[in-house]
Simulated scan of single mutants.
Amino acid sequence: MAQILDPLPPKQSGKILCCYINATSKIQVARISNIPNWYFERVVFPGQRLVFETPRKGQLEIHTGMMASAILSDKIPCDRLMLDEPSTDEFDPDSSDGKDPFNTKPMLQLLNTKTEDTRKPLQVGSFASVD
């Protein structure tokens, strides 16, 4: 679910879509503080993926939570976290190969196509009493 609390400041050109994954076992706070007139701060739980939009010159700070504090553990230029955008050819239904890039697998798969009798007798184990 997208959560847009603070839209990008006006007059910002070159916005990009980015993704950060918290691959640690600790709660992290992701913050972009180098863009004037814009506040971006999100809590990222272990294993969680954060997808966000930012100006190209944004720099993501990762603060790792400890018991009563948080330590700045990384600074990542946002252009390194940019998601690859598909080219316009991939969306063109009249492209030369005629393949749909999104529907590469069949929607339904047959689970069991055997027609022979698969019934087998039930084998029951015996119990012995021990004195």
Results as ranks from 00 to 15, higher is better:
22 N>L: 01
33 S>H: 09
62 I>H: 02
56 R>L: 06
58 G>L: 01
84 D>F: 03
85 E>W: 06
32 I>Y: 02
15 K>A: 12
108 L>F: 08
47 G>P: 00
131 D>R: 15
69 S>D: 08
111 L>A: 09
101 P>G: 13
77 P>M: 07
65 G>M: 15
106 P>S: 03
65 G>C: 15
71 I>S: 10
59 Q>R: 11
79 D>V: 10
84 D>M: 03
25 S>A: 11
40 F>D: 05
65 G>T: 06
113 T>V: 11
56 R>K: 09
28 Q>M: 04
8 L>H: 05
55 P>I: 03
21 I>K: 03
82 M>R: 09
27 I>Q: 09
130 V>Y: 15
11 K>H: 10
103 N>W: 06
78 C>P: 08
121 P>Q: 04
37 N>C: 13
85 E>C: 05
19 C>H: 07
107 M>P: 01
43 V>N: 02
48 Q>C: 01
126 S>F: 15
50 L>Y: 01
39 Y>N: 07
18 C>P: 07
42 R>P: 00
3 Q>I: 04
51 V>P: 01
121 P>R: 01
121 P>G: 06
18 C>M: 06
26 K>P: 02
66 M>N: 12
109 Q>L: 11
91 F>D: 15
16 I>N: 00
99 K>C: 15
53 E>D: 11
91 F>C: 13
109 Q>H: 08
69 S>T: 14
117 D>H: 14
131 D>Y: 07
85 E>P: 05
25 S>L: 11
22 N>E: 05
55 P>L: 05
32 I>D: 00
40 F>H: 04
43 V>P: 00
23 A>P: 01
6 D>M: 11
105 K>R: 06
117 D>S: 14
99 K>T: 12
87 S>P: 07
37 N>P: 02
52 F>K: 00
72 L>D: 10
37 N>F: 14
